[in-house]
Amino acid sequence: MGYFVTVESGVNLFVEDLNHAGRKTIVFLHGWPLSHKQFEYQFTVLSGMGYRCIGIDWRGFGKSDKPVNGYTFDRLADDIRVVVDALQIENFTLLGHSTGGSIAIRYMNRHKGYGVSKLILVDAAAPTGFTKETANQLLKESLNDRPKMMQGVTDTFFFQYITKPFSDWFVQMGLQASGWSTAAIITVLRDENLHADLPNIDSPTLLIHGSHDKVIPFSQAIDLHQKIKSSQLVPFHYSGHGPFWEERNRFNQIITEFIGRP
C-alpha cells in the first residue's frame, strides 16, 4: 500500500508500506539518486516471510514532492522522524543504503535512535561521502547531461553483469528525481561528513558492503566498523555497490538472521 505523509507545509513524502500486519518492521532508506523501488527484491521476499516493509522516498526523489530546499542530512533525518511519528512505529530495524545510510546515521545521532532497535548500513556513504573531485565531476555532469550521468553511475554501480533492460530500468529510477535535488545531494556528500555522529550510535549495527564497490570504497566500511560500537561487518565478495541485487538471496538471509524471524 502506498500513501503520502506530510513532513512540512507543502512537502509530502511517498511511503510504500507492505504487509502492515507484519510482526517485525524494516524501514528502508534508498540511495542517491534512486527510490524505494531499488529494494524490490527485498520487499517481494521479506514481506512474504512476514516482515512489514516500509520504503520511504526522500524529498526530491521517487514519488515524493520535490521542493527546492531541505537537502541537508539534518532535514532529511528530520523527515524520517516525522514519518516514524506519523506511522507510530517502534522497535523497528532501520536500513539505509549508500546516502540512505548517511541519513540513517544522522537520524541515529540527531534523534537518539528514536524507535530503532537495530541498524543496517549497506555500502553506506559514510563517514565521508564523495571526494571533492568525484563530486565536482558528478555535479558538472548532473547540471549539463543528467541522463548521461545516471548511465555512468549505473555502469559503475554493479560488479556483476546486468542486462540492458535492467540498466534501463535503473537509469529511469534515478531520473525520476528532480535535477535540483540530484545536484543538491552531490553537494551534501561533498561538503558534509558523519565522523561526529558515529560514537553516539548504540543500537546493534550490521554493516554490509560490497568488496568491489567503486562508488564507496570498502575501506569506509572498515572505518565504520571501528567507530560504531556493537557493529559487525559482513563483506559481500561478489558485489559492487548493489549487494541488495547482486547477492540478493544471501543479502536477504543475512538480514533475517540479524533481525530475527517474525
Rank of each mutant, 00 (worst) to 15 (best):
Y3H: 15
F4K: 15
T6W: 06
T6I: 02
G10S: 02
G10H: 00
N12I: 07
L13R: 08
F14P: 01
V15D: 01
E16T: 11
E16K: 15
N19A: 09
H20G: 13
R23G: 09
T25V: 10
T25A: 06
I26E: 07
L34N: 11
Q38K: 06
Q42V: 08
F43M: 08
F43A: 00
T44N: 12
T44F: 12
V45Q: 10
L46I: 02
G50W: 01
R52Q: 06
C53Y: 00
C53T: 11
D57R: 09
W58C: 08
G62D: 04
G62F: 00
K63R: 15
S64V: 02
S64Q: 03
N69Q: 12
G70T: 11
G70H: 09
G70S: 07
T72A: 08
D74Q: 13
D79T: 11
I80N: 08
I80W: 07
V83H: 06
D85S: 14
A86E: 13
E90F: 10
N91R: 15
F92I: 02
L95I: 05
G96V: 08
H97M: 09
H97D: 01
T99N: 13
T99Y: 13
T99R: 10
G101M: 05
S102I: 06
I103M: 11
I105S: 05
Y107D: 02
R110Y: 03
R110F: 07
H111Q: 04
Y114H: 15
L119A: 05
L119F: 08
L121Q: 02
D123W: 02
A125T: 08
A125E: 01
A126T: 00
T128L: 03
T128V: 14
G129V: 11
F130L: 15
E133A: 13
E133D: 13
T134N: 10
T134Q: 15
Q137W: 13
L138F: 14
L139W: 04
K140L: 14
S142N: 12
N144Q: 12
R146F: 10
K148Q: 13
M150E: 11
M150L: 13
Q151V: 08
T156C: 09
F157I: 06
I162H: 01
T163D: 04
K164H: 09
F170L: 11
Q172F: 07
A177P: 02
G179Q: 14
I185E: 02
V188H: 05
V188K: 03
V188C: 12
L189D: 00
I201Q: 01
L206W: 05
D213K: 05
K214F: 01
V215D: 03
V215W: 03
I216C: 05
F218H: 00
I222P: 01
Q226M: 12
Q226E: 14
K227I: 01
S230V: 09
P235K: 06
H237P: 03
Y238L: 10
Y238Q: 14
S239V: 03
H241L: 08
G242I: 02
F244S: 00
W245Q: 01
W245N: 03
E247T: 01
E247K: 02
R248Q: 09
R248C: 04
N249R: 13
N249I: 14
Q253M: 04
I255V: 15
T256K: 08
F258W: 09
